[in-house]
Design a protein around this nucleic acid. Structure first.
Length: 530
RNA sequence: GCGCCUGUAGCUCAAUCGGAUAGAGCAUCGGCCUUCUAAGCCGAGGGUUGCAGGUUCGAUUCCUGCCGGGCGCACCA
């Protein structure tokens, strides 16, 4: 059975297609915060009008007529407003249906028939040091984006590209080698530009203890890999694929990609180096593929890697990169276009920087705390995940450590968790669980308001899905929590009238389902008691 | 110099890839606990959206210029 979101969005898309020959992109409907604008509003008439030279109000009238015909019985009221908005008010019938649907089907109620196969590559930090707080944000955002896609029915794979070859790796191995000398009491020195962290010494130490028979290079790599996996595992993130750059090179994938580019005429030689003519594709500058000393650049193997991804038959590729890679976007797009990959297959999302803030342990602690693992240790797993998600990807994140750690009402995570605790507490007191019946006893505006908001959850998911922004789910949960606390203060769930009590328990049950589903997507455990 | 982000209430941020009266939380001030957890609820104050122009039915959003903050501009990875 289709949920209301599918019905109404498809209907609107069909109207745009059949009458105006336009394909509207989702999301078309927006849930409105203001009650007088209804439960959903759409600026579709304005958009259609501006593209077809029609009068917005006439377009709105046409759309309204069609909507009434197709889904009129689910809607209390359809209003056309001033410049050309359509405001839609849910009928009580659709609200009760939604409530029934959520309680009977659980989170499956929100699933859609997308079924896209997609690959999301994120973090991919060099295995030359522990993950930073910036990597942590990319890790959590990527994981949640994957969750959102999967929750809506896509099949998702998470991939980590391991840069396990090249100068930086060599430098790490050299640094470890020196530390081994130190441990053996010999003369040692940190190499130029080498790695200085404590972990370098730890690798050296553990190589002396258990690395016998292994090459130092291999040992360093597997040590770093497990260090990274461990950090990620602590906030509940794991990857389906670990792709090795080294293997890519060994399998001659890089040579192959260069050969194809050459065949297509996008490679030329100059000053002893091979260049990719990326300016043909709106890049600002041609890029070196093979240096004059004969070695390949990082970009060369990156082309090969992305070409490989393109050929693995996904419906969509998503990359999460840090802001330091923004200059890289055009050249990778250029390369894929040059290789004849499907247009628009790859979408790169830039996740902006993270800074730490703390009043108590001022700059000293915050300044030195750059490791993800330290941050997790300080504020906890769930709080770390939550705070990483409280800003849009494109915004800098000022991570307030004190706030994240606070167990009080001004901490939004606690505010949300408190809802879970209150619901469980009432269930316990009621001594029985809601059974989905008695929904017809829902009458008051306070009750309906909660159901209304629950009915808007699919629209929130859609927005996050299309715009690749987890933050909308965080905002939704905060609003749901606020609505629930108001409800809790104003409406007594367990009251004299047992039919009404049951109906209200149903509302709690549906709220719990949506809340748990939302938290599950964010990768945060709900609490039962506080 | 070029590119990408960014500038909104005292603070941290929203504002749905141009939409309706620019909204929350914190902080401040004032109310609400003999009834399901007061970690909560209700109310008040607080704004020339960095500045100046432009585009149109409509601009916090787009364009131009200026001012401020962050990041990046390799035959590094």
């Amino acid at each position: 059975m289709k949920n209301f979101y599918d019905q109404i969005s498809l209907t609107l898309q069909e109207i745009a297609k059949s009458i105006y020959n336009l394909s509207l992109e989702s999301p078309i409907w927006e849930y409105s915060s203001r009650q007088e604008f209804g439960d959903l509003s759409s600026a579709a008439p304005l958009k259609i009008a501006s593209q077809t030279n029609n009068d917005p109000l006439e377009v709105a009238a046409v759309i309204k007529r069609e909507l009434v015909e197709k889904i009129g019985d689910s809607v209390e009221k359809l209003e056309i407003v001033k410049p050309g908005f359509i405001n839609l008010f849910f009928s009580k019938k659709i609200l009760i249906n939604t409530l029934d649907g959520i309680i009977n089907q659980g989170k499956k109620y929100f699933r859609e028939a997308n079924g896209k196969k997609l690959l999301i590559e994120f973090v991919s930090a060099n295995p030359t040091g522990p993950l930073s707080i910036a990597h942590g944000r990319q890790a959590v955002v990527g994981d949640v984006l994957a969750n959102i896609r999967a929750a809506l029915g896509d099949s998702v794979e998470r991939e980590y590209y391991l840069n396990d070859i090249g100068r930086q790796i060599d430098l790490l191995v050299l640094s470890v080698q020196e530390r081994i000398k130190e441990l053996e009491g010999k003369k040692w020195v940190i190499p130029e530009g080498g790695y200085k962290g404590e972990y370098v010494k730890e690798i050296a130490d553990s190589y002396l203890k258990e690395g016998k028979g292994q090459s130092l290079g291999d040992f360093c790599l597997s040590y770093m890999e497990s260090l990274i996996k461990n950090d990620l595992g602590r906030i509940g993130i794991s990857f389906n694929n670990w792709v090795s750059q080294k293997k890519l090179v060994e399998d001659k994938k890089v040579e192959e990609a260069i050969r194809i580019l050459k065949e297509r005429g996008f490679i030329y030689e100059q000053e002893g180096a091979l260049w990719f003519r990326s300016t043909k594709f709106s890049d600002s500058k041609d890029r070196v593929i093979k240096k004059s000393d004969g070695s390949l650049t990082y970009f060369a193997s990156d082309i090969a890697y992305h070409y490989d991804k393109c050929q693995r038959n996904y419906g969509r590729l998503i990359n999460l990169w840090g802001p330091d890679h923004h200059g890289y976007i055009k050249r990778i797009y250029s390369a894929l276009e040059a290789l004849g990959c499907k247009n628009d297959l790859l979408r790169v999302v830039i996740v902006q920087l993270v800074t730490l803030r703390s009043k108590e342990r001022m700059s000293k602690r915050a300044g030195t705390m750059v490791c993800l693992s330290e941050l997790i240790k300080e504020v906890g797993e769930d709080a770390t995940r939550f705070y990483y998600l409280t800003r849009k990807n494109s915004s800098h994140l000022d991570f307030d450590i004190d706030l994240a750690k606070k167990s009080s009402f001004d901490n939004p995570l606690y505010y949300i968790q408190y809802v879970c605790a209150r619901i469980e507490s009432i269930f316990k007191k009621a001594g029985k669980l809601p059974d989905g019946n008695f929904n017809q006893y829902i009458e008051s505006e306070e009750e309906l308001q909660i159901v209304r908001f629950l009915a808007q959850f699919p629209f929130c998911l859609q927005r996050s899905y299309f715009l690749l922004e987890p933050v909308f789910i965080v905002e939704y949960l905060k609003n749901l929590a606020s609505l629930f606390h108001k409800f809790y203060e104003n409406v007594r769930v367990l009251c004299q009238d047992s039919d009404k009590s049951m109906a209200r328990l149903n509302i709690l049950q549906a709220t719990k389902i949506v809340l748990h589903f939302g938290l599950e997507i964010l990768g945060i455990k709900p609490v039962e008691q506080m």
